[in-house]
Every structure is written in C-alpha cells, then in structure tokens.
Design a protein around this nucleic acid. Structure first.
Length: 602
RNA sequence: GGUUCCGUAGCUCAGCUGGAUAGAGCAACUGCCUUCUAAGCAGUAGGUCCUGCGUUCGAAUCGCAGCGGAAUCACCA
C-alpha cells in the first residue's frame, strides 16, 4: 500500500516549500502549495502556478518559475524535466516512477480502499427511513442509494460505519391505510391478491384519500368552509380516533397495525434486496417516539426551554435567527423533533459514535438546523457531530412527484422496467447467448441496477436532479453499463492473457518508456486514493462516479489503438496486461463503493 | 414576507479549496468491426457560464445587488 507521504505530489509540495524559503524567504506550508494536474495541451504531469509568489520574489513570473523549477528538479530525482509557460511551471515525472508505481500496486486487490483503523469510533449513517403507508418510489431510491454508497465511501476512507434505518411505523398516515382497509378491504391480503404487501397497503392509503376527498367535497357543498370540512370529515375523525386507540394500546387496533405493517416490511425487504441495500440496525418509531420527553424536562429544568400558558413546551431560537420551536404539544404528546432529540441521544450513547450522519432530503434542512441547535442548548457538546447529508429532490419533467396525481415513479416498477431494458439490449447484442438462464437473469439484474444506480449517483447529491421516464435511462455514453462493459472487456483480456498465453503477471517490468495513453491511465490510477479521500470528505459518490467514467474513457481510448495481447514484445505485452488488471481493480473498487457490481463478461 | 439552496451547450450533468483556449454524455451530422467484446473509438457542429457591479496579476468559482426557479418557516412527519 502506497503511503501518502511517498506520493510524488506530496514530495513536490514539500520540496517547493523548501525552495520557496531558501530562494525568496517565503514561508509556505506544504499543504498550502497547490499543485494541479497539467492540462493535456501542455507537456508535464504536475503544474505549479507561481503567480502567488512573484510579488515577494520581486521577479517576473517566468524567472520565478524557472528558478523554482531548476531548484526542485535538482532535489527530486524522479523529475525528468520542467517547462515554463507564462506563470505556469510544469513538471514532468520520469517513466521510471510510473512503472514502479504499477509494479507495487498491480496485485493490490483493495487498491484505493483504506483499511478501517482498529478500534475506530463508528460513524453512524441513518438512511432510508420510510413511512409504512405506501411503497417506495424514486425519491426513496435516491435516498437509499446515497445512504448505501456514502456508507461504503466512508468505509473506503477508513471509517467504521454503522448503517441504521428508522422506520416511521406509526402515526396518522398508517391509520388512514388501516381504516380504509377495514372499510373497503373485504379482508384482502397479499396472499389472496398476489399484490406485494407494501403496494397493497399503499392501495388503501390512496383509497382513504379518495373517499376522504369525497366527504370533504360534500361537506363543502353543504356550506362548510374548506378548513372545517377537512377536520370534520367522518373518515378523518375516525382515523384520529384510531390513532388515539393505538396510543392507548387497544388490542384490536394493534393487531391490525401489526398485520399491515408486517405486509409492508415483507414488501420493503424485497425492494431493499433488489436495490442491494441493508442495515446494521433498524429502529422503529413506535419504540422511539416517546424518547426525548425526559430531555425536554431536563431542558425546562435547565431553563433553556419554556412552557406556555396552555402547557405546550417550546425552545426559543429567535436569538439564532430562527423561530420558536414546539417540543411538546399542549396535551403533553411529543412531536417529530422531540423524538429526534431522543434518538440522537440514544444513538450517541449506543454507538459512542464519532459522527451521526443523517441522509435526509433538503426539505428538512430547517429541521436539522433546529435539531443541532436544541441539542447544543441542552448542553450536549456532541451536537456538532450531527451531520445532515442533505440531498436534492428528484423531479420529473412536469415538476415534483405527487402521489395524489399519480405521477410517482414506483421503485419496484422502475427496477422491473430497467431489467426488461437490460434484457432487450443484451439480446440485441447477442454476446451472452451461451450463458445459462440463471446467469443471464443475474446479468440483466446487474446491468439494470448498474444503469439506475449510476444514473442517480453520478449527480452531485446536494443538487436537485431530473428524471425523465419517457427518455428512460441510457445504456450508452456516461452510464453504468458503459463502465461495466469496459470492465468486462478488460477481464476478457486478462483471462486470455493468463489462460491462453500463460503470461506471468507477477514479474516486475522496468526500464521501458511509456506511450502517452499508458501514462494517462497510470496517472489516473495514481489519483484514486486521493479521489476517495476527497469524495469521502465531501460525502459525494458523484466524485467517485466521475472518476470511474474518466478512467474508463482513458482506457477505452488506449484499448482502441494499442495492441495488448497482440503486442509482440513479450515484456511490453505483460506490462499492458498488468495495467489492464489494475484498471479493472480500480473500476471494481469504485463501482463497489457505488453499490454497483461489475460483470466478468457481458 | 423571513431564511436557505440553485441558475454552465437544445436536453441531462462535470468543472475540487479562484488559474492556461469552460468539459462530457444524449440528441444531430462524418468516419472506423476478416484483427484483444462496436454497450466501443475518432471527428464535426453547438456557450452572453442568468444580468450588473465589485474584490485582484487572474472570476463559471469569492462579495454585493437585481432577475428567475425551488425548499422551508405546522400543536404534520
């Protein structure tokens, strides 16, 4: 494993720092010296912009660059040459360094992935957190894929990650489904209808809404104001009563609730399995919703919270530029925020976490701002360990998804559709006809999920993204299957090299000179460890996706016009296959961070 | 109205803490499969980086203002 201090960039930074000090008396720490990769149109590998130093050096940019270049070259043997264009100092690293890099990493199956430090405090990542009244849709898909891949990403950067899910299994929404099922369900079950459990429950949620709307309409026809009608509609009144009974532990209601939630969980489990996500621990809101009340009492005692005349409890955040926030209702029951305070404390205590990451949509930015503030007001110094990974909404061409308008993109439907597309595409290409049915099915699933996951994860998590169902998800260009395809092609070469040509990939190749494209690929590989680091710091799987795409572009260009197994020089052939192997490892490791599997052939 | 986020090619998106002539993919148009998998490669065309002002050697990137869009500001979760 390459240690960061040995990386050539770091040595360059350090040496440049020394040179700046000795030549111009300029104090600059190694970290403050920014190196960038040299742009393609210029010769070199790393570039130093010298403008920041010309003032103190009191010389022209060209002179400064030349002086620094000469002095640095003097001290670092790996530098082959340097050149100066205006204020840009370009260093060219000799091929020996790149060859040595490939030699030392070519067999490292975990290249780019850091090992978890022993005994490291865990990072707890909460994601998914569904409601149990309807099936998962595209928005949940983004959440789940992000949660899963960010967890992998943090783990790849050496963190001990625990994935948790907090299921919102109680509340008025599930009562609506329950009530509608009682009324209109005729005893339907997933078994009797063949409908997936979460979809069946979702069906009754929609059913409730339909009848409820009708009641509201009738009340308004009788002259009721809309607001009153909404409150007085019999269905709503009954749903509220059901919630109350639930809270009182009414056996009949609890049984119904258990049964219907059971259906939903079976459905969710299936969708999670399809998406390839999992959790280390699942919390249920029915078990946590009472947590936090003690905290509120503590806050009252401390004087950081206050009680209004009606008995409700609030936190005054006006001093922080926010509003007052309700923490206990007038009847003493808790709200979402109360529960979240409690679960945060619970989680902090349970895990001794270094960080508590919440993968939650940016519509809840305000909620998390408040959560952190209240925690710190309550005297918890770990409040700043709470990190809201705030991601953007998924929009459709005509705006937001609205379940009432039937514009939601269902997760199961979408996955099934993608699998169908993958099958069609594969059959069209006809490259896998000799595979068994089972292998083919697995491949279609792998490609379908690869396309879907990559499509979603390649965009910056913080940004709102658009999904156009009509155009569907592509399999060409900057896509998951493109990367999977590149991997399959490479593996094919490596297999043939070993099996058919008996190449010995363990030999060390040195003393040769690299082509432009080879050097491009090696430099790209060389970047991977720092890309993983940066991506993890930014909680951005997108940076991993973009890196992988770039690497594949470079490789395919190389593949197109460079003989590999057809190369006649044996050592050169061996080196190129070693390079192939390393690229395939990098592709596999980066794709695995995204939760995408890569095939041996396709 | 207050707060926060966003605005880059026809469309979807990159562009890291300010750096060289702003990049990909899709869509359009040209080439390349008797040779390691053409789900590929090479090329053409496409830009007022929303607008204006400012900061400085240098701005898509930082600051301010404006325009446009989104989210949020519930005794919902």
């Amino acid at each position: 494993m390459l240690i960061r201090n040995n990386m050539i960039e770091h040595r360059l930074q350090q040496t440049i720092g020394e040179v700046l000090a000795s030549l111009y008396n300029i104090e600059a720490t190694a970290d403050s010296i920014v190196l960038q990769t040299t742009r393609k149109e210029f010769e070199g590998d790393f570039t130093l912009v010298v403008f920041p130093y010309v003032k103190q050096a009191r010389k022209s940019p060209e002179m400064v660059a030349n002086e620094i270049g000469a002095a640095v070259k003097e001290r670092i043997a790996e530098i082959e040459s340097f050149n100066v264009v205006k204020g840009f100092l370009n260093f060219k690293i000799g091929d020996a360094y790149w060859l040595q890099f490939v030699g030392s990493e070519k067999d490292n199956a975990t290249f780019g992935i850091k090992q978890c430090a022993a005994g490291a405090a865990p990072v707890v990542v909460e994601y998914s957190s569904p409601n149990t009244n309807k099936p998962l849709h595209l928005g949940h898909i983004r959440n789940n894929l992000l949660g899963w891949s960010v967890s992998n990403l943090l783990a790849a950067n050496g963190h001990n990650v625990k994935k948790v899910n907090l299921v919102n299994d109680r509340g008025i929404h599930i009562c609506k489904s329950m009530l509608a099922w009682q009324r209109y369900g005729n005893g339907e079950t997933p078994e009797s209808t063949g409908i997936k459990g979460d979809h069946l429950v979702g069906k009754y949620y929609v059913e409730f809404d339909k009848h409820y709307k009708e009641e509201v309409r009738q009340l308004m026809e009788q002259g009721r104001a809309e607001e009153d009608a909404k409150k007085e509609a019999p269905l709503m009144v009954e749903a509220q009563a059901m919630l109350k009974k639930w809270e009182e532990g009414d056996k009949e209601i609890r049984d119904l609730w258990n049964m219907m939630n059971g259906w939903v969980y079976a459905g969710f489990d299936e969708t999670y399995r399809q998406m390839g996500v999992a959790f280390d621990k699942v919390y249920y809101e029915s078990q946590t919703y009472l947590l936090g009340k003690e905290l509120v009492q503590k806050g009252l005692d401390m004087g950081v919270l206050f009680r209004k005349e009606d008995g409700s409890v609030w936190c005054d955040l006006t001093g922080d530029g926010l509003d007052q926030k309700l923490l206990l209702r007038r009847d003493g029951t808790s709200v979402y925020m109360t529960q979240d305070l409690g679960t945060a404390l619970l989680r902090h205590n349970e895990f001794g976490a270094e960080r508590l990451v919440y993968v939650v949509g940016n519509e809840q930015d305000y909620h998390f701002k408040v959560l952190k503030l209240v925690l710190s007001k309550l005297g918890f110094d770990w409040a700043d360990k709470v990190y809201h990974l705030s991601y953007g909404m998924v929009e459709l061409p005509n705006g937001k998804m609205k379940s009432r308008e039937g514009t939601v993109v269902d997760a199961d439907d979408l996955i099934a559709e993608m699998e169908k597309t993958a099958e069609e595409m594969s059959k069209e290409h006809g490259k896998n006809d000799d595979m068994s049915q089972e292998e083919q099915k697995q491949l279609y699933h792998m490609l379908a999920l690869g396309a879907l996951k990559y499509f979603i994860l390649k965009v910056d998590p913080t940004k709102t993204m658009l999904f156009n169902p009509a155009e569907s998800i592509d399999f060409n260009g900057n896509t998951g299957p493109f990367i999977q395809y590149t991997h399959a092609r490479i593996r094919s070469i490596v297999r043939k090299g070993i099996e058919e040509q008996n190449l010995d990939l363990s030999q060390t190749i040195d003393g040769m000179s690299l082509t432009e494209k080879e050097r491009e690929i090696i430099k790209s590989l060389h970047d991977l460890p720092s890309v993983v680091e940066q991506a993890a710091e930014n909680y951005s799987p997108a940076m991993i996706a973009n890196y992988a795409y770039d690497l594949c572009k470079n490789f395919n260009s190389f593949y197109q016009d460079t003989p590999i197994l057809r190369e006649e020089n044996g050592r050169l052939k061996c080196f190129r296959v070693q390079l192939c192997q390393m690229v395939s490892t990098a592709i596999r490791n980066t794709m695995n961070i995204l939760g995408i599997e890569v095939p041996e052939r396709m």
